[in-house]
């Protein structure tokens, strides 16, 4: 049954997200070409001198504008993917469609698992497509400066997607282990974001008498903020400990590294606990608290 639920959920998401991502790839390719065209135009300018200088400047400006807009559109594709996944979850369970979904001979856990898997798969597809496009656009934009170095830019963009990854962009050697860690943390972060959104909208639907969607959005922002504050406070404690270790009596870089490692591990443990909590709460809400109009 889980397989069937997943298939229907994934197919429903595909109807909207496949055209969206094809369009995103199109935008990425065009922006990349615009970048290379801008580079070629400057070569043209060198060849013909000042006669077409103004035209070249104008076209270069347009190419730069298109690249900027395409980056914005790619960002919008990521946001839209997340919104579409959440809309599917809400509409399928908390509107009239819920009469069908929630009377299927399946458990609440199976319904949630199918929706998490379908949502996660699409978020990962989106990450790969958008980051690939961003990498291509980046390479194209570098054409303006004549410094096309895909090897140095694209993999870093792809690997450095996670928060920790971006923080570690300065690392000189990106080992396979580091790359795996970045992706694992990215997947965990995505899972947490998705489940937090699911649980927020499920709570909003069960607690609010009216404006259930607005309640869901409010809860998502509120819980996200509260979670960020708690994790941030714990991180600050670790930073203070690391600072004490590096300047105190027993100044030792090993101790500092150990404290920072503990901070990273604690963040992961908290996030895993939050994922489990969201999962359990969402299943309970689906089982006991849904009251369709």
């Amino acid at each position: 049954m889980l397989k069937k639920l997943f298939r229907y959920d994934f197919k429903a998401l595909c109807r909207v997200l496949v055209p969206l991502h094809l369009a995103a790839v199109g935008v990425g390719v065009l922006a990349s070409l615009a970048g290379f065209a801008g580079y070629s135009l400057s070569e043209l300018s060198h060849a013909f001198g000042d006669t077409i200088d103004q035209l070249v400047t104008l076209l270069e400006g347009l190419a730069a504008l298109f690249i900027g807009l395409s980056m914005l559109l790619l960002f919008c594709a990521t946001v839209t993917t997340f919104v579409v996944v959440i809309v599917r979850f809400y509409r399928n369970l908390f509107t009239d469609e819920g009469y069908l979904t929630l009377t299927l001979p399946v458990t609440a856990g199976q319904i949630l698992t199918a929706k998490v898997l379908a949502g996660m798969l699409w978020m990962l597809i989106d990450a790969v497509v958008v980051l690939g496009c961003v990498g291509a656009v980046h390479a194209g934009a570098e054409g303006f400066t004549g410094d096309i170095s895909l090897a140095s830019s694209l993999p870093v963009w792809l690997l450095g997607f996670s928060t920790n990854g971006i923080a570690s962009l300065g690392e000189s050697d990106i080992t396979m282990l580091v790359a795996l860690r970045w992706w694992a943390q990215t997947v965990l972060q995505m899972l947490f974001t998705l489940l937090l959104a699911y649980v927020s909208f499920a709570l909003g639907a069960s607690l609010a008498k009216q404006h259930k969607v607005a309640a869901g959005v409010g809860l998502f922002i509120g819980i996200w903020w509260a979670y960020g504050m708690i994790v941030g406070a714990i991180d600050i404690c670790f930073v203070l400990m690391a600072s004490y270790a590096s300047t105190g009596f027993a100044a030792d870089t090993n101790v500092t590294d150990l404290v920072m490692g503990a901070m990273s591990a604690t963040s992961v443990v908290i996030q895993i606990a939050a994922v489990c909590g969201c999962w359990a709460l969402c299943t309970w809400l689906l089982k006991h608290r849904v009251n369709l109009a």
Binding site: A12, D96, G98, Y99, L100, P105, V106, A293
Partner: peptide, 18 residues
């Protein structure tokens, strides 16, 4: 539960098909 849902056929007042 899932087993009872497999033998109950329910027609709600609302249109539930997308």
């Amino acid at each position: 539960g899932p087993q009872s849902k497999a033998i109950v056929s329910y027609l709600p007042e609302r249109t539930y098909l997308a």
